[in-house]
């Protein structure tokens, strides 16, 4: 471009309305981000301010005591352990089934007629109120067995888990560029080998995030457990019997008439949040360690 031409050129005028719109959008987005962080902090702060005082060693080491008994209101050791048992059982079923479903939808879905219906069912299932899933667990595993039991609770939680894990796995696998699948296939790898050695490892971070979200969601479910695991004041790890859980324990205490128990419910919520948080950190930490070199 020659000099006179350049001198004669002006920058295209920018319309004021577009500048205002751009600025407004930016501030709206920032404001929303601050708002959501603020709400989260407020909720946690509220929990800490009310339940924090009730947090003590007793909570983690003792069983709940009835009013009037020595040591009232006692602890929630049984509920913490019960939640862990339910979470492990639900995960053992829910994570593999969810991930395999996600792999099917992403990797084999284009060749199968049942992929679209399966995806639809997953979405519907993810949107079903969890109390409905509880009733399903009741019909399938409580009625035939004859009494409330932990397996029914774990089953209900797994049902809540599967669609979340499946859909997030599918989305994450779809983000893996097709060219690396082709590279693997071109080297003579089978589809299965390609998925296990290349596609899944490439998507590990996202898949694990989905699994963590599902576990956090399930750890905080109450409704599916009311009809299934029921809850218990005893220390038990036996899933064939009614099994205590943090959420049901919190529910019972929070709806009870006594101040001590209500305060304990707040403390229980703090413990629940802490549990999910620690679980999350642990998985992320171990994951970062194993994938660090692959940056």
């Amino acid at each position: 471009m020659s000099a006179p031409e350049k001198a004669g050129r002006k920058a295209r005028p920018r319309r004021t309305s577009s500048r205002v719109l751009s600025t407004t959008l930016k501030y709206l987005c920032s404001a929303s981000a601050f708002l959501i962080s603020g709400i989260l902090l407020a909720v946690i702060g509220y929990f800490v301010s009310i339940g924090g005082s009730a947090i003590n060693w007793q909570l983690f080491s003792e069983l709940p005591q009835a009013r009037g008994m020595e040591g009232y209101p006692g602890g929630m050791l049984n509920a913490i352990l019960g939640t862990c048992v339910l979470l492990v059982l639900a995960s053992v079923v829910g994570i593999p089934v969810g991930i395999l479903t996600g792999i099917f939808l992403s990797e084999y879905g284009s060749e199968s007629r049942i992929a679209a219906p399966a995806r639809f069912v997953c979405d519907v299932l993810a949107g079903v109120p969890s109390i409905v899933v509880g009733i399903l667990g009741y019909e399938l595993l409580v009625v035939p067995i004859g009494h409330y039991n932990g397996y029914a609770g774990a089953f209900a939680l797994a049902i809540v888990m599967i669609p979340i894990v499946a859909r997030s796995t599918e989305e994450m696998l779809r983000l893996v560029p097709n060219t690396i699948r082709e590279a693997s296939i071109a080297l003579g790898a089978t589809r299965a080998h390609t998925i296990m050695k290349v596609v899944l490892p490439a998507a590990t971070g996202g898949v694990v995030t989905g699994v963590m979200l599902a576990m956090a969601r399930v750890a905080s479910e109450t409704a599916p457990l009311l009809f299934t695991a029921l809850g218990s004041r005893l220390l038990t790890l036996d899933p064939s019997q009614p099994l205590p859980s943090l959420t049901v324990h919190i529910f019972n205490q929070a709806t009870g008439p006594y101040r001590e128990e209500q305060t304990q419910a707040w403390a229980g919520m703090l413990i629940l949040i802490l549990l999910v948080f620690v679980l999350n950190l642990a998985v992320r930490f171990s994951l970062r360690k194993s994938t660090l070199k692959l940056g």
Partner: peptide
């Protein structure tokens, strides 16, 4: 599968595996 093992291929964009 056996056929592809006898043929090497390089693509437009570099596509190393995440390993």
């Amino acid at each position: 599968i056996d056929l592809r093992k006898r043929i090497g291929m390089v693509f437009q964009k570099p596509n190393p595996f995440p390993m």
